[in-house]
Amino acid sequence: MKTIKSNTSALLKLIILPLIGFSILILLWWLTANYLTNLMPTPLVAFKANWDYISNPFYVRGPGDIGIGFLLIQSLKRVIIGFLLGSLVAIPLGFLIGLSPTANRIFNPVVQVLRPVSPVAWLPVALAVFNLANPSAIFVIFITSLWPTVINTAVGVASVPKDYLNVARVIEMPRWKQIFKIILPASLPYIFTGLRISLGIAWLVIVAVEMLTGGQGIGFFVWDEWNRLNLSSVMLAIAVIGLAGLGLDLIIRKIQNFFHIEQIEG
């Protein structure tokens, strides 16, 4: 009896309740499509119109007509390159700020001023320098990925428990060794929190950037389809962007779990 009961409650928790949430969402969509605008298709109409995209995501029928799977890959590529470059700069910079009060006084004001700036504002600067859409988009993602990782790494490094460092001092461990054997492992949970936030924001920003730069990508697809008043495709793109973002977050979590790094929930 008991096992059956717990099985049904697991089913309820994992499947039925989330389904209720999505049903409400689809209902709101349906109400909007029926009563608020006549540009928007109802869910069923949209699904039928998108069937070609969904069933056949990887096709190339010309330079401007590419399957949604390929578009997604183009966007992911930009985000991942920009994110990796950003992290490569942000983690050492965060370490420096966390370790040295002097470095903190030099860099922290710059970080605090630049952090609230929408990364998209950097696009004209990037375009002026690179003269090309793709490197500019990657540069904006690079900037996006800096701040959360810098700040979280610095906080992590600065909040390594004093006693861990005292142990290292008592056994006369050299400073450079302390960085790799004690400070880095102790601040990994914070660094990963920073990376997850960075990647999340980078995925938000890429859509806006691609709307502006054009070319191939899921962001430009959204804008292009709107210009054709094809809202079915826009709705599909929203779903695809959401799922891809979820996937990115999941990948970082898996890496974190693989290395047994504690999660800081925020």
Binding site: Y164, V167, R169, V170, I171, E172, P185
Partner: peptide, 19 residues
Amino acid sequence: TGPGKERMMIFQNYALLPW
């Protein structure tokens, strides 16, 4: 003049590295 391994310390909260 500073910490040294000839004077080893045992800490109240153990100070073990959790990883």
